[in-house]
Simulated assay, not measured.
Amino acid sequence: MKNLKIIGITPIEKPDVKLALALSKAKAFPVIHLGRDQKEAAEAIREMSKKTKVKFGVCISESGFFDINLSDQITLAIIPYGLTFPFKSKRVKIVYQVHSVEEAIAAQQDGAYGIIVKGNEAAGKVSADSSFILFQRISREVSGIHIWVQGGIGVHSAAAVIGLGARGVVLDSQLLQFSECQAPVGLKTLCEKLNGNETRVIDGFRILSRPNSPALPEKPTFEDLVPFLGSLDLDKGYLPLGQDVCIGTDLYQKYKKVSNLVLLSGNLYSDTLGRLKVLIRFQKIMRLPNHWGCDILLPKVR
C-alpha cells in the first residue's frame, strides 16, 4: 500500500463506489464508508470488487457491520477507537481513528497498523481539540506508528502536517462537491453555501443542523441522534458533515475533478516541503509564533 499519502473516505457516511473508483484512478487510496445500512454496504463492496482489481479499504462505524463479507481486495479497515475488529487477518490492516492522546497510546498498544488523528473539524465522531493541535500532542507522546490527520485538511494544511511527520492526510467532507461524488445535487448546492458554522457537535458527534432538522431533546446524547442518522433527507435526519465542507467548496472550484485535486495538490505538497526543508537547514529547530495557542516545533531534516 504505497499510495497512502492521501486517503479518501466516501463522505456523509455513505458508500460511493463511483467516488472510490475515481480516487483509485487518481492514485489516492480509496476507502468506502459502509454507512448504516448493511445491505447497501454489502452491495457497494461487491460492486467495487467487480469493477476494479485494485486494493481498497472500508470505514466501519458500527459493530454490527463486522458480519459483512470482506472481499480479498480489502486491505485496510478504518475504525473509531473503541470498536474491536473481530477478524484476525494479516491482509486487513487496522487503522484506528483516535480523538485523544490516551486513545492514540492505547491503539498502538493494541497493535494497530496506524492511527488517524481525527480533530474537531471533521464529520461524525470528533475530538474536542482541533486536528492540528491534537496531532502535535499525539506526536509528542507516540512514535513508531503511521499517523494520518483528518479534519480541517486543505492543500496547505496537508503539507504542514506531512512536513511535521504525518504519513499522510484523510479527506472526506471535502470531496462531497466533486462531480465524481454521487451525493444528491440538492445537497451539493446547499453545501456550496455553507461556511462550516452550520454544523454542530452533539455528544462528540458532528452533524449538519438545519432549521427544519428533526427535533431533539434539550440536551441530546448520541443515542438520541442515532435514529436520525443514515437519511439524506434533511427534514427527516441528520447528516454527518465536517466544518471542512467549506474547504471542499474552494477545492472543487479550483480543481473540478478528483484527479486534478490529487495530482496538483501532491505537487504542491512537494514544493511546500522542499521550502520547509531549506528553512530548517538554517536552524535545527525553529519556533514559529502562531494563533493556535501553542508552539510548533519543526523537526530536524535528515
Results as ranks from 00 to 15, higher is better:
I74P: 00
P15A: 02
I115C: 06
L273Y: 03
Q253D: 13
G57L: 01
D271P: 05
Q253C: 12
E223R: 15
H146Y: 15
Q174M: 13
H291D: 12
D203H: 09
S259Y: 05
E121L: 06
G82L: 08
I60Q: 05
V95T: 05
E218G: 10
I116E: 04
V98Q: 04
H99C: 04
A106H: 09
A104N: 07
R36D: 02
S24W: 04
G154K: 05
E103F: 09
V142A: 12
D172V: 04
V226C: 11
F87A: 14
K90F: 10
A112Q: 03
V54S: 15
K219H: 15
I202R: 08
Q182R: 12
G114A: 09
S259A: 15
I78E: 07
V92R: 11
I9F: 12
P214M: 07
A28R: 00
K118G: 02
N69Y: 15
H33G: 12
Q283P: 03
L134S: 01
L234P: 08
G165R: 06
L194R: 03
N197I: 09
K256D: 09
A166V: 06
L187H: 00
R302D: 14
Q253R: 15
I153W: 00
F132H: 10
I116L: 11
K51W: 11
A160T: 08
V92C: 08
V245K: 00
H99T: 09
S130R: 13
F66N: 05
G237Q: 03
A42T: 08
F56S: 04
Q38N: 11
N197S: 15
T249K: 12
T189Q: 15
G111P: 12
I145A: 07
G196C: 09
C246N: 13
Q108T: 03
I247Y: 03
D129V: 07
R140F: 11
F178M: 03
C181M: 06
A112L: 06
F85C: 07
I296W: 13
V149T: 04
Q73H: 12
R302T: 12
E13V: 02
T75W: 09
I202Y: 01
Y252S: 04
E121H: 04
N260Y: 07
V31H: 11
G124T: 07
V126T: 12
L241Q: 05
I9G: 01
K125P: 03
G57P: 06
E180K: 02
E121Q: 09
I78M: 12
S63D: 15
Y81S: 01
V98S: 05
E62G: 07
V95N: 01
